[in-house]
Amino acid sequence: MPRADLLLELADDELVLGWRNSEWTGVAPFLEEDVAFSSIAQNEIGHARALYELAATELGTTADELALDRRPDEYRCAPLVELRRLEWARTIARHYLYETADAFRIAELTRSADAELAGLAAKIEREEVYHRMHAEMWVGRLQATAEGAARLREAVEELWPAALGVLDEELRPGWTEEVGERLGFPLPSVPALERGRHTGELEELLEEMTAVRRSAPAGASW
């Protein structure tokens, strides 16, 4: 895959998931979690920005143009990150599935011969460690009760086809094995909902996300 395309996949995932996670700001299950989850959302958007900047240099454009001015079908994000605010168990399931899959992808990039890419991946990973800690502890907390465990399982089963679509086929088996072991129940044998097609929810998200940009194309200052 050309480097710019790879960067856009990563950046679009982080931007769209960051946006989705930020939809919990003010309405998360309790105040402390509200702050923590919002902060994770901010980190994801920060990662997206750094990745867009790298892609922009290569494509002769700017991070803002890449993030906000493309048509919906030009975004390369996985369907998993597009789903609109899910209830909490599904949010945690997506968070856990995305963060663990992302770890595989980032680990691979840190080993890249491309020093710029490897360097950025290492930087991103230093923050992602805390996202995974957060996701892990929530999985543990849900699994601690029968109701929580049942809800988590239902959520994972529902999201599984979309979750499979985050990684390419090379990295998928290793990640699937790790997740299966951690969750302790058999994961559905279903085809992946691959990257490249979008859910209807992406368009709606982009409409909202780019509203300021479209209202002030020359750039808004605050």
């Binding site: 309790f30 105040l31 402390e32 702050v35 923590a36 902060s39 805390y130 800690m133 957060h134 502890m137 543990g140 907390r141």
Partner: peptide, 20 residues
């Protein structure tokens, strides 16, 4: 101070509130 359901949550929240 803050509410947290356990030590691991407390560590995460402390990092977010007083460390980032």
């Amino acid at each position: 101070s803050f509410h947290a359901p356990g030590r691991d949550f407390a560590e995460t929240y402390a990092r977010e509130f007083y460390g980032r």
